[in-house]
């Protein structure tokens, strides 16, 4: 591996992979570092995305489509259901495969990828970000780069290390738990949302169908609600009431930063993208497509900035994203 890259991307989620791809497309050298063993796993996501949000970035492929969505069902606290029909307008993804494909598309454009590489600091030169420090196979290492793209998700710390105040106020964090369960007899083309302060205070429960009567079932509550009761408590009561005997295939926790995008997401030598930049729809909590959009812009601007040899060009990111 080279000892210096034009662009280093931290995190191989949808935002990171798009940043890596759009930077590599400009012909600059790109390395994407991911702390986990696998790109795309574990999946901390309900996996819903609009058709428009996905088509822009990758050609549709049945292998990562778990179901096709054409209806919304909204269920009020007293059990009344309102059904809204859209026509085929979205998908439930199989994100493990989807994220993998996104990373592969970055690799196909020339980006290098390294998993199990945990970034734990930044290199600074005259207060300008000039690379990363990371742990790989038990060894502490360093790599220089002209631009670092922080796409390190909800747990992002990259921005803070560069001096930006990027943590999420706990009241604005949607603290989530989700199970993927089987034997869930729901319509496979409908997204179900359950509302009510006893069900999911300040948020909603989602039941998103996947193939073969399995479904992602989860909720998010704000950290403020979490003072009283945890998301897990609500999940357990919901499952007991609605799907008492459903076999659980996966259970995950996760956070969605439900605030507006950070005011500052770029400083000399570094830009943030995706959840790290809080590029999430604060109403729905959806962040896959906005993360891909943010990542693609970050990658393109980083590539341009290097080609033009104009480091300040990356600061235009705040204006376009």
């Amino acid at each position: 591996m080279k000892d210096k890259f034009d662009v280093i991307v931290v995190g191989a989620g949808p935002a990171g992979s798009m940043a890596a791809r759009f930077a590599a497309e400009q012909g600059v050298s790109v390395l994407m570092l991911e702390k986990d063993r696998d790109v795309g796993y574990p999946v901390r996501c309900g996996e819903a995305i609009s058709k428009k949000g996905v088509e822009e970035f990758i050609q549709l492929d049945e292998k990562w489509i778990a179901s096709k969505i054409s209806k919304f069902s909204l269920i009020s606290p007293d059990g009344t259901e309102s059904l809204i029909e859209f026509g085929e307008s979205g998908y439930i993804l199989d994100r493990k495969i989807f994220d993998y494909e996104l990373a592969k598309s970055a690799a196909n454009c020339g980006a290098q990828i390294l998993t199990r590489a945990y970034v734990n600091g930044l290199l600074l030169e005259d207060n300008v970000v000039a690379g990363v420090k990371y742990e790989y196979q038990g060894e502490q290492k360093e790599l220089k780069s002209k631009i670092v793209i922080g796409a390190d998700g909800v747990e992002s710390r990259i921005g803070r290390w560069a001096g930006l105040e990027t943590f999420t106020d706990f009241r604005n964090m949607e603290c989530c738990v989700q199970v993927t369960a089987s034997n869930i007899k729901v319509d496979s083309n409908t997204l179900y949302f359950y509302f009510g302060k006893n069900v999911a205070p300040g948020g909603y429960f989602w039941v998103f169908p996947k193939s073969g009567y399995s479904a992602n079932i989860g909720l998010g509550i704000s950290g403020m609600e979490g003072k009283k009761r945890s998301a897990l408590y609500y999940l357990n009561s919901f499952m007991e009431k609605n799907f008492p005997d459903a076999p659980i295939l996966t259970s995950v926790a996760g956070g969605v930063p439900s605030t507006i995008t950070l005011k500052r997401i770029s400083i000399p030598g570094m830009v943030l993208a995706g959840d790290a930049a809080r590029q999430v729809n604060p109403l729905s909590g959806g962040g896959i497509s906005s993360g891909m959009i943010g990542g693609s812009i970050a990658g393109r601007i980083a590539g341009e900035s290097i080609k033009m040899n104009k480091p300040d060009h990356i600061l235009t990111y705040e204006k376009v994203s």
Binding site: K35, Y118, E155, S251, G254, P257
Partner: peptide, 20 residues
Amino acid sequence: CDFCGCCVGICPEDAIELKE
């Protein structure tokens, strides 16, 4: 712990270290 990163994202002091 599920290593989800929620606490890391809200910690105002950058006091939580989370690996895989």
